[in-house]
Design a protein around this nucleic acid. Structure first.
Lengths: 190, 190
DNA sequence: TAATTTGCCTAAGACCATTAGGCAAACGTA
DNA sequence: TACGTTTGCCTAATGGTCTTAGGCAAATTA
């Protein structure tokens, strides 16, 4: 029997592609084995189980997304950097919906700590350094920015903005303008 | 054989409780039947299939959430209304994590249109009427608000804010203050 | 070339979703 | 109250899923 020459990494990569094609939820050992042209049981040499497979796809996606966001903000600052950063997220989500969904996959604490997750917060923090926020407010702003990016893209991909005017595209730039304005005029604490 | 006296509504309600207990993803016909003390096949008199079950749980959750949000903003305006509205979402998510997850369940266009979804945007719009936004900017603000609420709660529930100071509680009020400030000083379009 | 590793296989167990068909409890009606 | 109808829940069966165990042969190393 000719071997397919698989490896854990290639299996996970194929899993990520499959997620983009049919959605992360549908990525199961049997479906992935079908795509790879092998028997389901053979996957278990490369991956511990279905949960492990999704975890690895999540880790892959987090890395990829961090790489793209990092490249996007290089050499930029202020509203320019904000737009590039936000667009990196949104573009990634549309180009790789399954991988992006994997980004939300719940990781246990240890795995999350070892993932690219912390890189994401460091990048957001770096981005905000272009705005002169009071030290103590920076974390709040990081959390706000993460919330908006995640929330907007999620709602947009669910189609929430596609059945009413104005276009989502337009809202997106207006919202980035509004965030930029907010970051420049962050209110003082009570 | 004594009958359990079930009905579609009671089944869905039990499904919602089960979702809060073990997570929406784990809510399956067999698990729900176990909880109800009946055989799996018997569920199919009340619900079309597993997907239909989750859809109905989603519809229930959307209604409940809309009811609570609506009650929260009654008689309030401005920052006061904003806080009550936002807290209604966050409190619901923490009290009913499974139902809240169901809120994100992808509904097909027709079902979504007939759900309480539109009520949510109408409420958000009503809330924003307390701020004097330019007509054309209102939709953008509605979308921003929805994004922040959804995004923040999702990240918080995933534990993203629980491993670093300051507390999520603190960020939450600061972010609401910031949003309030932004809505009062919404930037003019380019 | 011989020995070892390992990628992929077949086989099997346990569970799940779903459909078909049956019985008896509950209900409407006379 | 008695009868016919409805229907809630059942058992049985099909085909799919995940996962483990054990085996063979291809690839790798000595």
């Amino acid at each position: 029997m000719a071997r397919a020459g698989l490896t854990a990494e290639r299996v996970v990569r194929a899993g990520a592609e499959l997620a983009d094609e049919i959605g992360l939820e549908q990525v199961t050992p049997s479906e992935l084995a079908r795509k790879l042209g092998i028997k389901t049981a053979s996957l278990y040499s490369h991956v511990k189980n279905a949960h492990d497979l999704k975890t690895r796809i999540a880790l892959l996606a987090l890395e990829e997304l961090a790489d793209q966001a990092s490249a996007a903000i290089a050499g930029r600052a202020g509203r320019d950097a904000l737009g590039a950063f936000a667009n990196a997220y949104r573009d990634y989500a549309f180009q790789h919906p399954g991988r992006f969904a994997a980004t939300r996959f719940r990781l246990d604490a240890a795995t999350a700590a070892a993932s690219a997750g912390p890189r994401h917060s460091r990048m957001t923090r770096a981005l905000l350094r272009g705005y002169d926020l009071p030290e103590l407010q920076e974390t709040h702003a990081v959390r706000l920015l993460g919330s908006v990016l995640n929330g907007y893209v999620e709602l947009e991909m669910a189609g929430s903005f596609s059945h009413s005017a104005p276009s989502s595209e337009e809202s997106w730039t207006e919202i980035l303008d509004a965030l930029d304005s907010l970051l420049r005029n962050w209110p003082a604490s009570a």
